[in-house]
Design a protein around this nucleic acid. Sequence first.
RNA 1: GCCGACGUAGCUCAGUGGUAGAGCAACUGAUUCGUAAUCAGUAGGUCGUCAGUUCAAUCCUGACCGUCGGCACCA
Length: 645
Amino acid sequence: MPAFTLPDGSVRHFDHAPSGAELAAAIGPGLARAALAVVVDGETRDLSRPLEHDAAIRFITRRDEEALTLIRHDAAHVLAEAVQALYPETQVTIGPAIENGFYYDFARPEPFTPEDFPAIEAKMRDIIAANAPFVREVWEREAAITFFAARGEHYKAEIIRDLPAGETITLYRQGEWVDLCRGPHMRTTGDVGDAFKLMKVAGAYWRGDHRNAMLSRIYGTAWRDRKELDAYLTQIEEAERRDHRRLGREMDLFHIQEEAVGSVFWHPKGWALYRRVEAYMRRRLDANGYQEVRTPQLVDRALWEASGHWEKFREHMFIATVEEEEKTLALKPMNCPCHVQIFRQGVRSYRELPLRMAEFGACHRYEPSGALHGIMRVRAFTQDDAHIFCAEDQIAAETVRFVELLGQIYRDFGFPDFRVKFSDRPLIRAGSDAVWDRAEQALSEACATAGVTYTLNPGEGAFYGPKLEFVLRDAIGRDWQCGTLQVDFVLPERLDADYVGEDGARHRPVMLHRAILGSFERFLGILIEHHAGRFPLWLAPVQAVVATIVSDADSYAEAVAARLREAGLAVECDTRNEKINAKVRTHSLAHVPVLLVVGRKEAESGTVALRRLGGAAQEVLALDEAVARLAREATPPDLLPAWQR
RNA sequence: GCCGACGUAGCUCAGUGGUAGAGCAACUGAUUCGUAAUCAGUAGGUCGUCAGUUCAAUCCUGACCGUCGGCACCA
């Protein structure tokens, strides 16, 4: 007779196999009303299924975060039923819960449009109001295939055909409607509630493969209650306000135009920001034993053939030819083969290792048109790239050193938290399995030494080696993969790099490909969105504006601005014939961190009224003190004396 | 690259089969003002490009380019 252990440690005994719902009722009527699903030894199940064996039990109610997944999954089913009710010619495929919501992929000659949403949502509300129970049925494979094929649901039939032998095939009914699904589901369609909204339509390939048919996907969001839904919609609006493309235009940082698709025109203010980041990175690298180099943009295809990139990435390379010569050159899509060329000049000694070769390398890649996105995904970009040539037994120490540097840099840019993913061997790869074994092992040992905990990202490594990926989290909770550290035993072999060891013999170095920001373009996009354009003083393109109240203060304002410029600050002077209210508004909207207001009083007393972005308070300071204070505040974090960090 | 939507002044957006408007920005003038929009005036557009339909196209049709949202891709 089964016994169930509850979260409080108490045990309930039954003389039969009760359903989850029965068990909940036995515990209490409140729980019986609230329970949506039951977790049996860690596995979430429908309340209707009998519990045959002894198990640890807990219930999921609407108060649990886990309810979200159930609600979203059920919402996907309700969406599918609604769509088939309204558009009977539509085939259903799959519809999972995802972060923040759910989607369902439909096969239909005519794709859906957002104009269809009101009708579909109304139908969904009807289905939810009908409160039909979800009923689980176990089917025999052939019967299930015949059933779906007969209904013209060929995708469902294909899914069943491809299920591994021995897999239990379950269908769920909700009223008249039925779908193949492994579950679990809540009790009834009514449990979905009313906190959902259809968001957008999109094309999506069947089974995520671009060789397959394009399906019509409908995305929705669903939450436990209206309040959560509204909070989510507000968060989306917030993200739109932060959009780097919008801020880039509003703050006059950069633009992109048709004649140079995927390349950035940096305006003076955007370039100021770029240069601050670059200068900071250069100082950090200098201080960490890197040697900066610069390598050619145009490189003969022979080198790319030797490196293996020509074979794998040719379609993504910009090719250049001249009429005079037969040569085919490619704009470099990456820097590593060029760095190996520098390494190969002369004879290298083990004494030079680890050799850390850095380049702010400008690269070009012909990215698919649909991948382009503002300055985040472009065709011309600059990596904060470096390659560490080292011996195999130096991988661990170099990894530790790199992770420390990376953490420091992320903190300085305002990203205190990051996580690490470990990507191991992909299906298509260079190098023997023995080499991959060694590379993966070296990297995982290095992680252990560096105290890095990671999540595994199977099969996502580069074709030449495994990699660590560093993912930071921004101010509104979005994850961005920026840094990377890749172990490469292959390229030194292919490009014949070697060094003379202690034993006098030639050895292959290992290459560690590594980047911290990834690309400047993308990282600046992330920075813009993370700070919502309100940069910390050391990064702000315009750090301060001196604004006059009356034109009598113009010459004093210019003098104030000059003093600040001498102290190294980027300052503008606003002597326009405008009221101070208008000036405050203009510069606040432009996200200028510091406003120095000067009128007759300040001009006479040699002071400034200092106002911070976002605050209404003003502080009247002697000019000298204001300059000293702002100069200190605008100091990049790596240049602050130790006691101030 | 694939599916869909979109493209009107610098920006945000109206609008119509008879060659276009608003607000903000810009410019000019007045105003000299104490912390988120002073007032008045002026100027600004081959309505993404190219074809087609039509007496007539910014509007209808098609192709292309670009942008946006996804998918696929991301050395």
